[in-house]
């Protein structure tokens, strides 16, 4: 990540992200009434990193191991005909049956809700969970579909053109949440 990003505004620092995830991990366990049947599925790519962190936090506090999977929703998007295929399709990894499980979908930013719509469709092709919940680090508003999160890290009000980037250590070299103005051209 370039360091000359003066117009980028940091909303959450690394330690704030960590605190937020810790609270979210607690809420996920509470929502699920424990960790029985709990499956955490991250959406490629940053949702996967956050899901890994959430799983580690839950495993630490609950002293148990959690099933973690990943979803790439590229092939379930509703806009292939208009935007063209995204060349890079990431791996989907849900190797166990999810019938009767409590699935928590994890993503970095919730905006229009279209990604989550696609994720719900994809999960339905893998089985019939007892329930599906949604956990997001950032809810930036601007929904185009009737989809709401169950566990939210932070709510932000952001200009429609601007972008929220969640940076994670593994992919970006540091952890933070930043707002990038419209003119910014860095890919998320």
């Amino acid at each position: 990540m370039p360091e000359h990003d003066s117009e980028k505004k940091t909303v959450l620092s690394a330690s704030a992200v960590e605190r937020t995830l810790r609270r979210m991990a607690g809420e996920i366990v509470e929502l699920n009434d424990g960790t029985d049947n709990l499956v955490i599925v991250g959406i490629q790519r940053r949702g996967v990193q956050l899901a890994t962190r959430l799983c580690a936090l839950i495993e630490e506090s609950e002293k148990t191991s959690i099933l973690q999977g990943s979803l790439d929703i590229t092939l379930y998007r509703d806009d292939l005909q208009t935007i063209g295929p995204r060349p890079v399709v990431g791996p989907t990894n849900i190797p166990w049956g999810i019938d009767g499980k409590n699935v928590v979908i994890v993503d970095d930013v919730l905006y229009t809700g279209r990604t989550v719509r696609a994720a719900l469709d994809e999960i339905a092709d893998f089985g019939r969970p007892a329930r599906i919940a949604l956990a997001v680090l950032i809810d930036r508003g601007g929904r185009e579909l009737p989809i709401q999160p169950d566990v939210v890290g932070k709510q932000l009000t952001i200009e429609p053109g601007d972008r929220v980037d969640v940076l994670v250590d593994d992919l970006d070299g540091r952890t933070a949440v930043v707002i990038v103005p419209t003119s910014g051209d860095a890919a998320p």
Binding site: T82, I83, G84, L110, Y111, T112, P188
Partner: peptide, 14 residues
């Protein structure tokens, strides 16, 4: 369709 539009749609249709 048009891959150049994929850029514009990035980060815009989460």
């Amino acid at each position: 369709g048009k891959p150049e539009l994929a850029e514009a749609a990035k980060g815009n249709s989460r």
